[in-house]
């Protein structure tokens, strides 16, 4: 890959925006928030963040998904932690979200609309989880 210039980056962004207009994703925006405190970083949250970015893009959801970082969510014992806010689904904080599981998160929660039961550590309440 040759070194990219800022101008090339700007152009690529414009091309992407034209692929999918904002109107199509309005109200369907999904938020993914990765816990990036010391505990998260020590457990591989940086790799998880990277894996989420790649997997979302591979599934063609790049314009629809916002990916943010936050500090420790208080669940240090199950880092890396990731919160997912998707319209029409309960807001969930997932734990033990290593880079490999992060790919499943995108495929199941975002694409199929199914929860990853074994990784839910906060919200929704226990009676919602299929166990």
């Amino acid at each position: 890959m040759a070194k990219m210039s800022l101008e090339q980056l700007r152009k690529l962004r414009e091309e992407k925006k034209q692929d999918l207009t904002r109107r199509e994703v309005e109200g369907k925006e999904i938020q993914i928030i990765v816990g990036m405190g010391t505990c998260g970083i020590a457990a591989g949250a940086k790799e998880t963040f990277d894996a989420v970015v790649k997997a979302v893009e591979e599934k063609g959801l790049g314009e629809q998904v916002i990916i943010r970082q936050t500090g420790c969510m208080g669940l240090c014992y199950v880092e890396p932690t990731v919160e997912v806010v998707k319209p029409g689904m309960p807001t969930v904080i997932y734990g033990k979200m290593t880079k490999d599981v992060a790919k499943d998160l995108v495929a199941k929660h975002l694409v199929e609309g199914k929860l990853l039961d074994d990784h839910i550590f906060d919200r929704p309440a226990a009676d919602i989880m299929k166990k």
Binding site: R13, V52, G62, Q64, R68
Partner: peptide, 9 residues
């Protein structure tokens, strides 16, 4: 913040 922008970045 948008995943597509982060992938380009």
């Amino acid at each position: 913040e948008r995943a597509s922008s982060l992938a380009l970045l």
